[in-house]
Design a protein around this nucleic acid. Structure first.
Lengths: 354, 354
DNA sequence: GTTAGCACTCTTATCAATCGAGTGCTAACA
DNA sequence: TGTTAGCACTCGATTGATAAGAGTGCTAAC
């Protein structure tokens, strides 16, 4: 790659950027005119010819202009990552505003992330909340509701609360409920939620015989709550942005991609692949997944105490505005990372003034 | 409408159904051949000519076939509502399955509704959870988390629980927290959540002076929780189904409609208009809202104890498969109505076996 | 090394001719 | 009187040929 002299580099860069803007193959004459280079079209043609030989440009057909190859984008992107452009004040404000506006749960944060990400990059955004293996059972408790029903709340070590309304067994009073909650808490305290389904049976075996049916019901409920708790969640944003991209003018192509994005499992695979931290950019055929091999993807994972908590990504045509996407992702990634590192997010935000 | 003799009715129905299937204007020759009526094309032409005069058919241009008018759809739909087709066993199973699969919150129910509705009708679905004006403050309570933080839970009369993590003020112990919760509960108990923002200030005025700052903070938090609680929520389903419809082959039109659906406020207006219960069907220009006047919408509201809790709707081209849509909506509406009427939904489902 | 000139290629736009599905009307038929 | 065959006519869609436009590669001159 170092084999490119300055002029070739410059020309290649212009071609890439022009193509990103116009989605049209760019020709020598146009290039010369538009960016008033002090070079004749013929010279540029020669350079382009060289660049094509080197694998950086491609011709859709003989008499069309040229289009950047994956290698060209790769070069361009690597260059960008060395000095990513800064966001404008307005952009930063946009991000800040979309987060200090009464977001209370992590889900809200992820939702807002997906939204702002797609809005700013004008592409599809995906945010994956990884399943939370680390949540640890803290305690359960019954909150009174009325004579027949109570609210069962489950609290985890990281302060997550899950709740469900349950029927109070005939003739059981508050004291007994409290006792029941305490018993179960003793049994499960300290276990990762993800374990509960397995531990369950053993624990029940050892439990007193008296209220066996009750126990089993309660444990089943808890297991169901836990399972829900540790689920992956996927948030998509700006899927309709796709239709703005010329490459998806053809409805069939748009449908195909939207079909892929519709399947949560697939999106999880897309986002999960690769383990490197920081920004990961895969361009066109660099993508392993069929169906998005004419797309590029920019991903970032955030971690909390070392393990991955979530992944966000922007997906668009190979001809995406890398410069913008990278700086947005870069900023947003650091921003969220800070929020997560600060510790308990909902609390943090609940204290902000509105 | 009664002015149509049997044969005209039959022909009109066939034209409507053929057009619904093919999206192509239907001509006399084709109609005769396809449904082997014992009539010559010429006869059919005469009838069609009459039907056009009566306002039931329209011609895109002289040499094209004919297309049903809004009046024709209206007639057709009214006919359908008198004897809506039954769902197949498979369809019913589909619905049942999508609801007994660990849905725990009302939101989950709505989400599932949007999904199944769009899937079965092959059109865009919208589900609106109306804002819950009726929720009444029951009590708040602090649940322990660690030395610095506690979980504040807010319980409403209908068994809804909201929670948020808060910092424990320096040097405050569990007893004092309980006392605080009790004080606030006394102040707010019985108030509709929607009132809280207004009542708030007065209450604070009257409160003891000692912990004023603390009080204000707490009340602010509660107010924020309440506000979130009473929010409208909109769930969309199957927006990409749009692209399957020939009328949205043109990307621009699809974009326009998707743009409309993107705005929650607009969707709320769409679904909210009109107060009649049961199925409400608006066809093409019958719709008041610009932007969907070449679409039809089938809506149903469900009520709980008399007041509207939510609305679901299917939105598609005027040429939608009314028969299917109506029977699906009809069934689903009754199904959900039953669920809601049974009382507390999450509980109900939490007891089901998996 | 750069550039003007030119022949060549290939896509896109344009326009006319043709085709085909459909209509309306008239006259004949049962 | 209702039904149908026949026929002229309309109008969008398809096809084919032509021209225009953008771009390329190569050669030769600067």
């Amino acid at each position: 790659m170092g084999t490119l002299d300055e002029r070739k580099k410059k020309i290649l860069q212009l071609i890439i950027e022009d193509y990103i803007n116009t989605a049209e193959p760019v020709g020598s004459r146009n290039l010369a005119r538009k960016y008033n280079l002090d070079l004749s079209p013929a010279t540029i043609r020669n350079e382009m010819s060289d660049l094509e030989l080197l694998g950086y440009l491609e011709q859709p057909h003989t008499s069309a202009g040229r289009v950047p190859s994956v290698a060209a984008y790769r070069l361009y992107v690597n260059e960008l990552r060395n000095n990513p452009g800064a966001l404008t004040k307005a952009d930063i404000a946009l991000i800040t505003n979309s987060f200090n506006d009464r977001k209370r749960s992590i889900d809200d944060i992820f939702k807002a992330t997906a939204k702002i990400l797609s809005r700013m990059t004008k592409n599809v955004s995906m945010v994956l909340a990884d399943k939370d293996d680390t949540a640890i059972f803290r305690y359960i408790r019954f909150l009174p509701l009325n004579d027949e029903q109570a609210i069962l709340v489950l609290v985890t070590d990281n302060g997550h609360v899950d709740n469900v309304t349950v029927d109070i067994p005939e003739g059981m009073d508050a004291k007994e409920l409290d006792y029941l909650a305490q018993r179960v808490t003793e049994m499960l305290k300290g276990h990762p939620l993800s374990d509960i389904s397995d531990d369950l049976l053993d624990s029940v075996e050892n439990s007193v015989n008296e209220d066996r049916i009750l126990f089993v019901m309660l444990l089943n409920t808890i297991r169901r709550m836990s399972r829900n708790h540790v689920e992956h969640k996927v948030f998509l944003g700006g899927t309709k942005q796709l239709l703005n991209q010329p490459e998806f003018r053809d409805v069939e192509r748009a449908k195909a991609l939207l079909g892929i994005l519709d399947e949560e499992r697939v999106v999880r695979d897309l986002l999960g692949a690769g383990e490197d931290s920081g920004l990961r950019i895969t361009i066109g055929s660099e993508n392993k997944f069929s169906g998005i091999q004419d797309c590029s993807m920019v991903r970032a994972t955030y971690r909390l105490n070392g393990h991955v908590v979530g992944t966000m990504a922007v997906l668009g045509p190979t001809r995406m505005e890398y410069s913008k996407v990278i700086s947005v992702m870069d900023y947003l990634h650091r921003y969220l990372q800070t929020i997560f590192a600060t510790g308990n997010l909902p609390m943090l935000l609940s204290e902000e003034e509105e």
